[in-house]
Design a protein around this nucleic acid. Structure first.
Lengths: 156, 156
DNA sequence: GCCGAGCTACTCGGATAGTTCTTGTCCGAGTCAATGAGG
DNA sequence: CCTCATTGACTCGGACAAGAACTATCCGAGTAGCTCGGC
Protein backbone atom coordinates (compact mmCIF):
# COMPACT_ATOMS: atom_id res chain seq x y z
CA UNK A 1 0.00 0.00 0.00
CA UNK A 2 1.17 3.49 -0.82
CA UNK A 3 2.89 5.21 2.07
CA UNK A 4 1.12 8.46 1.24
CA UNK A 5 -2.02 7.09 2.87
CA UNK A 6 -0.49 7.61 6.28
CA UNK A 7 0.43 11.20 5.47
CA UNK A 8 -3.03 11.96 4.12
CA UNK A 9 -4.71 10.55 7.21
CA UNK A 10 -2.52 12.56 9.57
CA UNK A 11 -3.22 15.68 7.54
CA UNK A 12 -6.95 15.05 7.69
CA UNK A 13 -6.77 14.69 11.47
CA UNK A 14 -4.83 17.88 12.07
CA UNK A 15 -6.99 19.81 9.60
CA UNK A 16 -9.79 19.11 12.05
CA UNK A 17 -8.33 21.66 14.46
CA UNK A 18 -7.40 24.36 11.94
CA UNK A 19 -10.08 27.05 11.53
CA UNK A 20 -8.47 28.66 8.47
CA UNK A 21 -6.90 27.08 5.37
CA UNK A 22 -3.46 25.55 5.84
CA UNK A 23 -0.83 25.54 3.06
CA UNK A 24 0.65 22.23 2.00
CA UNK A 25 4.14 23.45 2.86
CA UNK A 26 3.14 23.99 6.48
CA UNK A 27 1.53 20.57 6.74
CA UNK A 28 4.74 19.10 5.36
CA UNK A 29 6.84 21.01 7.89
CA UNK A 30 4.63 19.82 10.74
CA UNK A 31 5.26 16.19 9.82
CA UNK A 32 8.78 16.71 8.50
CA UNK A 33 8.09 15.17 5.10
CA UNK A 34 8.76 16.19 1.52
CA UNK A 35 6.57 19.23 0.71
CA UNK A 36 6.36 18.49 -3.00
CA UNK A 37 5.32 14.90 -2.50
CA UNK A 38 2.79 15.68 0.16
CA UNK A 39 1.26 18.21 -2.24
CA UNK A 40 0.64 15.38 -4.67
CA UNK A 41 -1.45 13.49 -2.17
CA UNK A 42 -3.33 16.57 -1.07
CA UNK A 43 -4.24 17.10 -4.70
CA UNK A 44 -5.71 13.60 -4.69
CA UNK A 45 -7.79 14.51 -1.65
CA UNK A 46 -8.93 17.66 -3.44
CA UNK A 47 -9.93 15.73 -6.55
CA UNK A 48 -11.98 13.38 -4.37
CA UNK A 49 -13.80 16.36 -2.86
CA UNK A 50 -12.64 15.74 0.69
CA UNK A 51 -10.76 19.05 0.99
CA UNK A 52 -11.19 22.41 -0.66
CA UNK A 53 -8.18 24.37 -1.89
CA UNK A 54 -7.90 28.14 -2.05
CA UNK A 55 -5.06 29.92 -3.78
CA UNK A 56 -3.17 33.13 -3.14
CA UNK A 57 -2.03 34.53 0.16
CA UNK A 58 -3.67 33.02 3.23
CA UNK A 59 -4.70 30.13 0.99
CA UNK A 60 -4.32 26.42 1.59
CA UNK A 61 -6.42 23.33 2.28
CA UNK A 62 -9.45 22.88 4.52
CA UNK A 63 -11.97 20.11 5.03
CA UNK A 64 -15.17 20.39 3.03
CA UNK A 65 -17.33 18.43 5.49
CA UNK A 66 -17.43 17.91 9.25
CA UNK A 67 -14.88 15.30 10.30
CA UNK A 68 -17.73 13.07 11.48
CA UNK A 69 -18.77 12.67 7.84
CA UNK A 70 -15.33 11.66 6.53
CA UNK A 71 -14.47 8.00 6.91
CA UNK A 72 -11.01 6.51 6.79
CA UNK A 73 -12.08 4.60 3.68
CA UNK A 74 -12.82 7.91 1.95
CA UNK A 75 -9.23 9.02 2.49
CA UNK A 76 -7.72 5.68 1.51
CA UNK A 77 -9.78 5.48 -1.67
CA UNK A 78 -8.89 9.05 -2.57
CA UNK A 79 -5.16 8.36 -2.33
CA UNK A 80 -4.96 4.74 -3.46
CA UNK A 81 -7.75 4.73 -5.98
CA UNK A 82 -10.95 2.84 -5.32
CA UNK A 83 -10.08 -0.13 -7.53
CA UNK A 84 -10.16 -3.58 -5.97
CA UNK A 85 -6.81 -5.07 -4.95
CA UNK A 86 -7.65 -8.50 -6.35
CA UNK A 87 -8.69 -8.67 -9.99
CA UNK A 88 -9.99 -11.92 -11.46
CA UNK A 89 -8.55 -12.56 -14.90
CA UNK A 90 -10.99 -15.40 -15.62
CA UNK A 91 -8.35 -18.00 -16.23
CA UNK A 92 -11.06 -20.64 -15.82
CA UNK A 93 -12.07 -19.73 -19.38
CA UNK A 94 -8.60 -20.47 -20.73
CA UNK A 95 -6.65 -23.63 -21.50
CA UNK A 96 -7.72 -27.08 -22.66
CA UNK A 97 -10.35 -27.49 -19.92
CA UNK A 98 -11.82 -24.01 -20.34
CA UNK A 99 -15.25 -23.45 -18.86
CA UNK A 100 -17.89 -22.40 -21.41
CA UNK A 101 -18.63 -18.65 -21.28
CA UNK A 102 -22.31 -19.22 -20.57
CA UNK A 103 -21.34 -20.95 -17.31
CA UNK A 104 -19.36 -17.91 -16.16
CA UNK A 105 -22.14 -15.42 -15.58
CA UNK A 106 -21.37 -15.34 -11.86
CA UNK A 107 -17.85 -14.63 -10.52
CA UNK A 108 -15.85 -17.74 -9.70
CA UNK A 109 -15.51 -19.00 -6.14
CA UNK A 110 -12.03 -17.55 -5.74
CA UNK A 111 -13.10 -14.10 -6.83
CA UNK A 112 -16.08 -14.28 -4.47
CA UNK A 113 -13.88 -15.17 -1.50
CA UNK A 114 -11.41 -12.38 -2.23
CA UNK A 115 -14.21 -9.88 -2.81
CA UNK A 116 -15.82 -10.85 0.46
CA UNK A 117 -12.57 -10.20 2.30
CA UNK A 118 -12.14 -6.83 0.66
CA UNK A 119 -15.69 -5.88 1.59
CA UNK A 120 -14.94 -6.75 5.21
CA UNK A 121 -11.82 -4.57 5.03
CA UNK A 122 -13.78 -1.68 3.57
CA UNK A 123 -16.57 -2.08 6.12
CA UNK A 124 -14.04 -1.79 8.92
CA UNK A 125 -12.48 1.34 7.45
CA UNK A 126 -15.89 2.85 6.81
CA UNK A 127 -16.82 2.44 10.46
CA UNK A 128 -14.07 4.81 11.61
CA UNK A 129 -14.29 8.53 10.90
CA UNK A 130 -11.61 11.18 11.00
CA UNK A 131 -13.41 12.62 14.03
CA UNK A 132 -12.98 9.28 15.81
CA UNK A 133 -9.25 9.37 15.09
CA UNK A 134 -8.96 12.91 16.41
CA UNK A 135 -10.83 11.94 19.58
CA UNK A 136 -8.51 8.96 20.15
CA UNK A 137 -5.43 11.11 19.66
CA UNK A 138 -6.80 13.61 22.14
CA UNK A 139 -7.47 10.83 24.62
CA UNK A 140 -3.93 9.51 24.43
CA UNK A 141 -2.18 12.89 24.55
CA UNK A 142 -4.50 15.70 25.66
CA UNK A 143 -3.88 19.11 24.09
CA UNK A 144 -1.34 17.68 21.66
CA UNK A 145 -3.81 18.16 18.83
CA UNK A 146 -4.61 21.68 20.01
CA UNK A 147 -0.89 22.54 20.04
CA UNK A 148 -0.61 21.33 16.46
CA UNK A 149 -3.59 23.42 15.42
CA UNK A 150 -2.06 26.48 17.04
CA UNK A 151 1.28 25.83 15.35
CA UNK A 152 -0.44 25.49 11.98
CA UNK A 153 -2.31 28.75 12.37
CA UNK A 154 0.29 30.90 13.97
CA UNK A 155 3.92 30.99 14.91
CA UNK A 156 6.83 29.23 13.23
CA UNK B 1 -1.96 -7.30 -5.00
CA UNK B 2 0.23 -9.66 -6.94
CA UNK B 3 -1.56 -11.39 -9.78
CA UNK B 4 0.16 -14.66 -8.94
CA UNK B 5 -2.22 -15.12 -6.02
CA UNK B 6 -4.99 -16.03 -8.43
CA UNK B 7 -2.80 -18.61 -10.17
CA UNK B 8 -1.71 -20.15 -6.89
CA UNK B 9 -5.29 -20.47 -5.66
CA UNK B 10 -6.45 -22.11 -8.88
CA UNK B 11 -3.52 -24.52 -8.69
CA UNK B 12 -4.35 -25.39 -5.09
CA UNK B 13 -7.94 -26.14 -6.06
CA UNK B 14 -7.07 -28.42 -8.96
CA UNK B 15 -4.35 -30.15 -6.96
CA UNK B 16 -7.22 -31.32 -4.76
CA UNK B 17 -8.32 -33.74 -7.47
CA UNK B 18 -4.88 -35.00 -8.54
CA UNK B 19 -3.83 -38.24 -6.78
CA UNK B 20 -0.24 -38.12 -8.01
CA UNK B 21 2.24 -35.21 -8.22
CA UNK B 22 1.66 -32.74 -11.05
CA UNK B 23 4.54 -30.92 -12.80
CA UNK B 24 4.48 -27.14 -12.90
CA UNK B 25 4.55 -27.18 -16.68
CA UNK B 26 1.31 -29.12 -16.82
CA UNK B 27 -0.40 -26.79 -14.35
CA UNK B 28 0.72 -23.89 -16.51
CA UNK B 29 -0.65 -25.57 -19.65
CA UNK B 30 -3.97 -26.20 -17.96
CA UNK B 31 -4.38 -22.50 -17.20
CA UNK B 32 -2.55 -21.24 -20.29
CA UNK B 33 -0.08 -19.10 -18.34
CA UNK B 34 3.69 -18.65 -18.39
CA UNK B 35 5.29 -21.89 -17.10
CA UNK B 36 8.41 -20.18 -15.78
CA UNK B 37 6.50 -17.56 -13.85
CA UNK B 38 4.02 -20.02 -12.40
CA UNK B 39 6.98 -22.09 -11.20
CA UNK B 40 8.12 -19.09 -9.19
CA UNK B 41 4.86 -18.96 -7.28
CA UNK B 42 4.75 -22.71 -6.76
CA UNK B 43 8.18 -22.43 -5.19
CA UNK B 44 6.69 -19.91 -2.77
CA UNK B 45 3.99 -22.40 -1.87
CA UNK B 46 6.64 -25.02 -1.37
CA UNK B 47 8.68 -22.76 0.91
CA UNK B 48 5.55 -22.13 2.99
CA UNK B 49 5.04 -25.88 3.39
CA UNK B 50 1.67 -25.99 1.64
CA UNK B 51 2.85 -28.27 -1.17
CA UNK B 52 5.55 -30.89 -1.40
CA UNK B 53 7.76 -31.10 -4.46
CA UNK B 54 9.33 -34.28 -5.86
CA UNK B 55 11.94 -34.24 -8.59
CA UNK B 56 12.77 -36.54 -11.45
CA UNK B 57 10.39 -38.34 -13.74
CA UNK B 58 6.79 -38.56 -12.53
CA UNK B 59 7.68 -35.74 -10.14
CA UNK B 60 5.79 -32.53 -9.49
CA UNK B 61 3.77 -30.81 -6.77
CA UNK B 62 1.16 -32.21 -4.41
CA UNK B 63 -0.64 -30.87 -1.37
CA UNK B 64 0.92 -31.70 1.99
CA UNK B 65 -2.32 -31.52 3.96
CA UNK B 66 -5.99 -32.24 3.32
CA UNK B 67 -7.62 -29.31 1.52
CA UNK B 68 -9.88 -28.76 4.52
CA UNK B 69 -6.79 -27.69 6.48
CA UNK B 70 -5.53 -25.14 3.94
CA UNK B 71 -7.12 -21.72 4.17
CA UNK B 72 -7.13 -19.09 1.45
CA UNK B 73 -5.10 -16.89 3.78
CA UNK B 74 -2.38 -19.54 3.88
CA UNK B 75 -2.02 -19.36 0.11
CA UNK B 76 -2.17 -15.57 -0.03
CA UNK B 77 0.44 -15.20 2.70
CA UNK B 78 2.69 -17.74 1.01
CA UNK B 79 2.67 -15.82 -2.28
CA UNK B 80 2.41 -12.23 -1.09
CA UNK B 81 4.39 -12.51 2.08
CA UNK B 82 2.71 -12.19 5.45
CA UNK B 83 3.80 -8.60 6.07
CA UNK B 84 1.10 -6.03 6.77
CA UNK B 85 0.09 -3.81 3.85
CA UNK B 86 0.01 -0.65 5.98
CA UNK B 87 3.17 0.22 7.86
CA UNK B 88 3.17 3.05 10.39
CA UNK B 89 6.30 5.19 10.09
CA UNK B 90 5.61 7.00 13.36
CA UNK B 91 5.54 10.44 11.86
CA UNK B 92 3.88 11.66 15.06
CA UNK B 93 7.38 11.57 16.57
CA UNK B 94 8.75 13.91 13.94
CA UNK B 95 8.54 17.63 13.28
CA UNK B 96 8.18 20.63 15.60
CA UNK B 97 5.20 19.20 17.48
CA UNK B 98 6.69 15.72 17.89
CA UNK B 99 5.11 13.51 20.51
CA UNK B 100 7.53 12.39 23.25
CA UNK B 101 8.71 8.78 22.77
CA UNK B 102 7.40 7.71 26.16
CA UNK B 103 3.86 8.60 24.99
CA UNK B 104 4.18 6.31 21.98
CA UNK B 105 4.23 2.93 23.65
CA UNK B 106 0.91 2.00 22.01
CA UNK B 107 0.38 2.28 18.24
CA UNK B 108 -1.28 5.49 17.11
CA UNK B 109 -4.99 5.64 16.33
CA UNK B 110 -4.41 5.54 12.58
CA UNK B 111 -2.26 2.43 12.79
CA UNK B 112 -4.86 0.79 15.01
CA UNK B 113 -7.65 1.49 12.54
CA UNK B 114 -5.67 0.14 9.60
CA UNK B 115 -4.58 -2.90 11.58
CA UNK B 116 -8.15 -3.63 12.58
CA UNK B 117 -9.21 -3.56 8.94
CA UNK B 118 -6.43 -5.90 7.94
CA UNK B 119 -7.38 -8.30 10.72
CA UNK B 120 -10.95 -8.34 9.43
CA UNK B 121 -9.62 -9.09 5.95
CA UNK B 122 -7.47 -11.92 7.24
CA UNK B 123 -10.31 -13.33 9.32
CA UNK B 124 -12.50 -13.52 6.24
CA UNK B 125 -9.80 -15.27 4.20
CA UNK B 126 -9.09 -17.66 7.06
CA UNK B 127 -12.72 -18.74 7.15
CA UNK B 128 -12.58 -20.17 3.63
CA UNK B 129 -10.59 -23.32 2.88
CA UNK B 130 -9.38 -24.70 -0.42
CA UNK B 131 -11.87 -27.53 0.07
CA UNK B 132 -14.69 -24.98 0.25
CA UNK B 133 -13.52 -23.46 -3.03
CA UNK B 134 -13.42 -26.87 -4.70
CA UNK B 135 -16.91 -27.65 -3.46
CA UNK B 136 -18.26 -24.37 -4.82
CA UNK B 137 -16.65 -24.96 -8.20
CA UNK B 138 -18.17 -28.42 -8.30
CA UNK B 139 -21.56 -26.97 -7.44
CA UNK B 140 -21.44 -24.45 -10.26
CA UNK B 141 -20.09 -26.81 -12.91
CA UNK B 142 -20.36 -30.48 -11.89
CA UNK B 143 -17.58 -32.77 -13.14
CA UNK B 144 -15.57 -29.84 -14.46
CA UNK B 145 -13.09 -30.31 -11.64
CA UNK B 146 -12.97 -34.06 -12.26
CA UNK B 147 -12.24 -33.46 -15.94
CA UNK B 148 -9.34 -31.20 -14.97
CA UNK B 149 -7.98 -33.82 -12.62
CA UNK B 150 -8.15 -36.43 -15.35
CA UNK B 151 -6.43 -34.12 -17.81
CA UNK B 152 -3.66 -33.44 -15.30
CA UNK B 153 -3.05 -37.12 -14.68
CA UNK B 154 -3.42 -38.50 -18.11
CA UNK B 155 -3.80 -37.52 -21.70
CA UNK B 156 -2.54 -34.43 -23.49
C1' DG C 1 -10.34 59.81 4.51
C1' DC C 2 -12.04 56.67 0.68
C1' DC C 3 -11.65 54.16 -3.65
C1' DG C 4 -9.50 51.63 -7.22
C1' DA C 5 -5.82 50.08 -10.35
C1' DG C 6 -1.51 47.83 -10.22
C1' DC C 7 1.70 44.91 -8.22
C1' DT C 8 3.84 41.53 -5.44
C1' DA C 9 4.07 37.39 -3.23
C1' DC C 10 2.12 33.30 -2.23
C1' DT C 11 -0.79 29.31 -3.39
C1' DC C 12 -2.15 25.14 -6.03
C1' DG C 13 -1.86 22.05 -10.17
C1' DG C 14 0.08 19.17 -13.42
C1' DA C 15 4.21 17.69 -16.12
C1' DT C 16 8.93 15.69 -15.31
C1' DA C 17 13.16 12.24 -13.59
C1' DG C 18 14.93 8.49 -10.21
C1' DT C 19 14.33 4.30 -7.66
C1' DT C 20 12.13 0.15 -5.89
C1' DC C 21 9.05 -3.64 -6.68
C1' DT C 22 6.46 -6.74 -9.55
C1' DT C 23 6.52 -9.42 -13.84
C1' DG C 24 8.61 -12.51 -16.96
C1' DT C 25 12.53 -15.57 -18.44
C1' DC C 26 16.43 -18.56 -18.46
C1' DC C 27 19.74 -22.24 -17.34
C1' DG C 28 22.11 -25.42 -13.95
C1' DA C 29 21.86 -29.00 -9.89
C1' DG C 30 19.53 -32.94 -8.45
C1' DT C 31 16.61 -37.01 -8.82
C1' DC C 32 13.71 -40.68 -10.24
C1' DA C 33 12.46 -44.14 -13.62
C1' DA C 34 13.46 -46.83 -17.47
C1' DT C 35 16.94 -49.77 -19.76
C1' DG C 36 20.07 -53.13 -20.81
C1' DA C 37 23.70 -56.33 -19.49
C1' DG C 38 25.19 -59.77 -16.39
C1' DG C 39 24.50 -63.59 -13.14
C1' DC D 1 13.99 -64.91 -14.47
C1' DC D 2 16.10 -61.68 -11.13
C1' DT D 3 19.55 -58.01 -9.79
C1' DC D 4 21.98 -54.03 -10.45
C1' DA D 5 24.84 -50.38 -12.57
C1' DT D 6 24.27 -47.09 -16.25
C1' DT D 7 22.01 -43.97 -18.81
C1' DG D 8 18.79 -40.65 -19.93
C1' DA D 9 15.39 -37.40 -19.52
C1' DC D 10 12.65 -34.91 -16.63
C1' DT D 11 11.94 -32.17 -12.43
C1' DC D 12 12.64 -28.28 -9.29
C1' DG D 13 15.38 -24.29 -7.56
C1' DG D 14 17.49 -20.06 -7.70
C1' DA D 15 19.97 -16.43 -10.54
C1' DC D 16 19.17 -13.01 -14.47
C1' DA D 17 16.60 -8.91 -17.45
C1' DA D 18 12.33 -5.91 -18.69
C1' DG D 19 8.43 -3.23 -17.41
C1' DA D 20 5.42 -0.83 -14.29
C1' DA D 21 4.33 1.53 -10.17
C1' DC D 22 5.68 4.26 -6.31
C1' DT D 23 8.66 8.06 -4.70
C1' DA D 24 10.45 12.45 -5.14
C1' DT D 25 10.95 16.96 -7.56
C1' DC D 26 10.39 21.06 -10.33
C1' DC D 27 8.30 25.01 -12.60
C1' DG D 28 4.18 27.45 -14.63
C1' DA D 29 -0.94 29.22 -14.08
C1' DG D 30 -3.82 31.58 -11.11
C1' DT D 31 -5.40 34.27 -7.20
C1' DA D 32 -5.78 36.81 -2.87
C1' DG D 33 -4.06 40.47 -0.32
C1' DC D 34 -1.16 44.59 0.03
C1' DT D 35 0.49 49.11 -1.80
C1' DC D 36 0.33 53.41 -3.64
C1' DG D 37 -1.60 57.03 -6.24
C1' DG D 38 -5.72 59.70 -7.29
C1' DC D 39 -10.12 61.80 -5.89
Amino acid sequence: MSGGVEWALHCAVVLTTAPSPVPAARLAALHDVSPSYLAKHLQALSRAGLVRSTQGQAGGYELTRPAEQITVLDVVDAVEGSSAAFVCTEIRQRGPCAAPPEACAAPCAIARAMRSAELAWERELRSVTVADLAAQVDDGAPEALARMGAWLSGDA
